[in-house]
């Protein structure tokens, strides 16, 4: 086992443990903080797989922007954790059993496939090469994605204003 393999297994176990803790927390702030740890691990894995630009973007977008947005909303809404119902074991059991069957099959398939034993070679995609490739071959997709982001911006602005407008209408109806 090389050093890279050891790094991968350590990172994978840290990510799995922190994600497992995140999805079982009742306090939403704790869940978000565990998830930030998990995303930092993912960023390190991106770096290990030779994508330094994506590693930086993972920290900036996922661990930075998205998780902070979640924190803002959680603090804005003032959710009472005791009001959230805990799911029953009876409802969990069938789904858990089916998931375990899938996991067993996946383990079987992976362990019996002969082509899966060749290890990944290390590589590196420099940000300059990556950017040139992106804007030469996929510039149209970048434009479409930016258009999508614009639409989402307009949509969330509309949703934010829609309630205020509805509240105004209701107060006018009252007298």
């Amino acid at each position: 086992m090389t050093l890279y393999a050891a790094i991968f297994y350590v990172l994978a176990s840290v990510i799995l443990v922190s994600t497992g803790l995140a999805i079982t927390r009742r306090n939403l702030v704790h869940a978000v903080v565990y998830l930030i740890i998990s995303f930092f691990g993912s960023a390190l894995l991106y770096y290990l797989f030779g994508a330094p630009l994506l590693a930086a973007l993972e920290i900036i977008i996922y661990a930075g922007a998205i998780m902070v947005l979640f924190l803002f909303i959680i603090m804005m809404l003032r959710i009472d954790p005791s009001a959230l119902r805990r799911p029953l074991l009876k409802e969990w059991l069938p789904a858990g059993a089916l998931g375990l069957i899938y996991l067993a099959i996946a383990l079987l398939v992976v362990s019996t496939d002969p082509a899966s034993q060749t290890p990944l070679m290390t590589g590196l995609a420099r940000p300059r090469v990556f950017g040139q490739f992106l804007f030469q071959k996929y510039w149209l997709s970048v434009e479409i994605i930016s258009f999508l982001l614009l639409i989402v911006l307009i949509g969330s602005l509309y949703l934010g204003k829609a309630y205020a407008r509805g509240a105004d209408d209701r107060t006018e109806e009252k007298p």
């Binding site: 999805i23 799911p87 990944l120």
Partner: peptide, 28 residues
């Protein structure tokens, strides 16, 4: 030389399953 690709795929699959559990089972 890192690990075989299948190990990464298995790890990503387990992580995906955790996401599914979180999206389906949590009442929030």
């Amino acid at each position: 030389m890192i690990v075989p690709y299948s190990h990464v795929l298995l790890f990503a699959g387990i992580l995906f399953a955790m996401g599914v559990v979180c999206a389906v089972a949590r009442r929030n």
